[in-house]
Amino acid sequence: MLGLGFIIPVSLLGGALCVDFRTSLRLMLSQPICGGLLTGLILGEPFNGLLAGTLIQIMFLGNFFVRGAKTLDLPIAGVISAALFVLVDIKLAGDVSIAAMVMIWALSFGLLAGWFGYFIYRTLFFKLSGAVEPIIKKAMEGKLWYLSLLNFFMVAFNFLYGFVVLMVVLPVGYKTILYFVSTSWRLTGSVELLYIFLPFIGVGSLLRIQILKSQGFWFISGFLISAMVLVFM
């Protein structure tokens, strides 16, 4: 049974990372590679958390959001993947033979929660944005404390959104993964398997960055130097 002692701290972390991601704090703790490590630290398995967070991060390497146009909740995806992987791994007493299977389920939950979570967030945000108009009007009339109120409301809204999504998804994901790993058919293999195959997605997303076209010399230099080091050393 997944206790509240695990769910609440991780959900609080998810809420805090959503504030970093959605407001302009931009300390970048919300990136899945950091979110995964922090989740792992909270749950007592920092390296496993980092492994899960990094896999999400690698897939979205060349994905950048320019002011406001955020299409997927990366912090939520990172925290959910890391938390589910760590918690199920603890439950299975670190059974490395099916670690790849657990990781695949954890990443699937993370990605889908990040995707659907984004649509929920957008719907809620557009509904609430109607409230901004009267506040602009009040501020223009000189009632400036409304601005501070709205600011704190937005921070609280972003925090609560992340907190609630994690509180809902974590128990469901945990039970679902435990159910599937207990069935007769199991995918065997370590997490290393995913570290071989999934980074190709990251290469695909990185190669779409326009500057690589104008900086072809440096790209090829990096490729060749690294290849020589790896092959000959």
């Binding site: 195959f197 290469v203 500057i211 690589l212 900086q215 790209f219 990096g222 130097i225």
Partner: peptide, 19 residues
Amino acid sequence: TAAVAFVAGVFTSIVFIRG
């Protein structure tokens, strides 16, 4: 700008060689 292209090249070669 040059550094990001260089690092992308390093990452690509690491991924393909490991594969």
